[in-house]
Simulated scan of single mutants.
Amino acid sequence: MTTTRDTRPVELRRTGFGPAPDAEALRAEPGVVRVPTPFGPSAWLLTRHADVRRMLGDAEVFRNGWTPADLADGPRRDPRQLSGDRSGNLLSLDPPDHTRLRRLLTPEFTVRRMRRLEPRIVEIVDDHLDAVERHGEPADLVSLFALPVPSLVICELLGVPPSDQDEFQARTARQLDMTLSEADRTALAAEALAYMQDLVARARRAPGEDLIGMLIREHSGAMTDAELVGIANLLLVAGHETTSNMLALGTLALLRHPDQLAVVRDDPGAVPPAVEELLRWISIVNSGSPRLAASDVEIGGSRIRAGDLVLFNLPAANRDPAVTDDPDRFDVTRRATNHVAFGHGIHH
């Protein structure tokens, strides 16, 4: 029997629901280690919970808004695969641009405004659960539920009209197909960008009650069209694949732990802590954008120099025995932990 060696960068490797053994081994070593990267220079890799939180919590020292020319080893290919400029993409911005946009965007995600969407979200979920039931056994949870539900919710959030939603969903699903060639994925990204530009142009003419419409109505002169397009694209990219994967893998985790499933199924009050435990235990996002050290700094006992790249592994950090008892055990009744499934700091 032969096994296939995992050639992906160590910060992207997984074993089942958890981190890869080599990421866990690095977490147990003293200090911080450097790892090779596929895009040029080596980088420091953080795997311990305390180190990851400290780095993500210091946006002044560990910068997001860098270019390849800022690297200590000289210009290299940018690994972040950002199309066009970074306008509106909060994940790639540093203060003060990040601060300004987040201040404008945060009121759109208040509990009151999200509750206005709740009846429509419940309707979307119910419709797709009914579709799964009508399909009969066996049913593909991913195609019938996990992929379309977040896509339709994002359509509601962004104000995608019903006449466009089928095409929007089909394009979004194809963008998540990792079997497509890079050229095909680039072309789909360009199509999505063009659609978002048209969506913003229509909202400028007649702003609705959706997120883009409210931003235009309440902050018309404070945000450019490019920033509105960037925000829309960010919500699509960051909100669709992650939610789809969480719905599917969260269901699989519960099915593989029937005792935990019974707790959640029989007690609605058990759902909130179960969601937090699923976020911690699965850590659906392996990592985030590489950070660039803006000055010399010591972290985890190692000296990181200005111009060095820093990577991080969230699954390893979320299963760090230094902060969670028996971290590999899936327990929906676990007391809430300071997990970093959503990151930490200003980009949380």
Rank of each mutant, 00 (worst) to 15 (best):
L279E: 06
S42L: 03
E241H: 05
D78F: 07
P207R: 09
A187G: 12
I154S: 04
M114P: 02
F62Y: 09
A131K: 03
V122A: 14
A316P: 03
H128K: 03
V10M: 04
V33M: 09
T333G: 15
V297L: 02
A183Q: 14
R174W: 04
L292N: 05
T3A: 09
F312C: 01
M178K: 15
A20G: 05
D308P: 06
A190Y: 14
V340F: 05
A173W: 01
C155L: 00
R115S: 11
I121E: 05
E298T: 10
S83G: 14
S295M: 15
P161Y: 01
R116K: 05
F39M: 07
D210K: 08
T243Q: 06
A203S: 15
V297F: 09
N233F: 15
S42K: 06
L12M: 15
R303Q: 11
R5Q: 03
R303F: 09
P68I: 10
I282W: 03
R27F: 15
N313P: 05
P95W: 00
G65H: 13
H348S: 14
I212C: 13
D259H: 08
P273N: 00
A146H: 01
L180V: 04
F312N: 04
D126E: 08
V52S: 08
P107E: 00
V297N: 03
P207E: 09
D296W: 04
D85N: 12
L278S: 13
H348N: 15
S151K: 01
N245F: 11
M246H: 10
H49E: 02
V200E: 02
L147Q: 08
L46N: 10
I346D: 05
V10E: 08
D164F: 00
D51S: 04
R80P: 01
A173Y: 03
L235A: 09
H98N: 11
V149D: 02
A322M: 07
V122C: 13
Q81A: 08
V297S: 06
I282H: 00
T106V: 13
P327Y: 02
R174T: 08
